[in-house]
């Protein structure tokens, strides 16, 4: 199965949230990177049939999004940004409800399916607890559990690790990696580390446009030869020209910086291997501390 997006436009009033987006997504984990406001959530919501598009075509498997939204929904599992659910229901009740709405009408089969996903997300012991008592991480796991019900062929996961602590984040990434084996999982995030460990392909959105599609390795290579590391006395950092500082750390020897520049910013600088984040920064070029030339 694949997801094909052709010339997708989405306009909110005068604001173009998506402009001429073209993507073809195959099975496995597909990452969608971009800064805040890039249009990632808009794209995800369109794919999840939550909002209409302004123009373009989207096919999910054999179905057209416009004419067969109900068929598309049968293939879907959706974990939106900031997942939440009925506070007064228990985890089991929520999943049981979703299972019925996904068409699992047989009581025994439904029970098995719910128990299975609870096990998968490690919430079996909290099945009878009210959702209102859950932590953020538990809610996210519940969210992925409901998305997995019905064995969807397409899983849309929007910013799943936002607000999670590092341990939860790692656990979540591993879970996503496990479930992406025989389905399409589209993972939207602005946290590069989420993509790095699990995605086999990705796209970068910036200001409504796709500015990159390919593998994570190729994205990292966008910054090849442009990433430098050096240590300077604190007062000299400001004298650097034409650099984008990626990171700075205070050490005993001075300020250790990692930066982007077309050429070595100083004699003390040494070139380092670019990371995915470096390649992302080169691609979108935003949110950095910039020392003007």
């Amino acid at each position: 199965m694949q997801v094909v997006i052709e010339s997708l436009y989405k306009q909110y009033g005068k604001v173009e949230a998506l402009r001429d987006v073209n993507l073809q997504i195959e099975s496995g984990m597909f990452g969608l990177l971009g800064p805040n406001g890039a249009g990632k959530t808009t794209l995800m919501r369109i794919l999840a049939t939550l909002i209409p598009k302004s123009a373009g075509k989207v096919r999910i498997g054999p179905y057209d999004l416009d004419t067969e939204p109900h068929k598309v929904r049968e293939l879907l599992g959706n974990l939106p940004q900031s997942f939440n659910t009925y506070r007064n229901f228990t985890a089991f009740e929520v999943l049981d409800y979703v299972a019925v709405l996904k068409g699992i009408t047989d009581t025994k089969a439904r029970r098995r399916a719910v128990d299975q996903v609870l096990e998968q997300v490690n919430l079996s012991r909290s099945a009878k607890a009210r959702v209102g008592t859950f932590s953020g991480g538990m809610k996210q796991r519940l969210g992925i559990a409901q998305a997995l019900l019905g064995n969807p062929k397409l899983l849309i996961v929007d910013e799943p690790t936002a607000g999670l602590d590092p341990e939860e984040r790692i656990r979540f990434r591993n879970l996503l990696g496990d479930i992406s084996r025989d389905r399409i999982v589209i993972l939207s995030t602005h946290v590069v580390a989420d993509i790095e460990s699990v995605c086999s392909a990705l796209a970068v959105l910036n200001r409504g446009r796709v500015v990159y599609t390919g593998t994570p390795e190729e994205l990292a290579r966008q910054a090849q030869g442009k990433v430098w590391s050096l240590t300077l006395p604190a007062g000299e950092v400001d004298r650097l020209r034409a650099v984008k500082i990626l990171a700075r750390r205070q050490t005993a020897e001075g300020v250790q910086i990692r930066c982007l520049a077309d050429q070595a910013p100083s004699n003390a600088a040494r070139q380092v291997a670019p990371s995915l984040e470096d390649g992302y920064m080169v691609t979108v070029g935003s949110g950095l501390e910039v020392v003007a030339s």
Binding site: H70, L76, L79, P80, Y86, L101, Q146
Partner: peptide
């Protein structure tokens, strides 16, 4: 509008329910 206020709308309306 319960799903909106409970934060469940994104899931609920993506379900295969007519």
């Amino acid at each position: 509008s319960r799903e909106t206020s409970e934060g469940f709308e994104g899931v609920f309306h993506a379900l295969p329910v007519r």
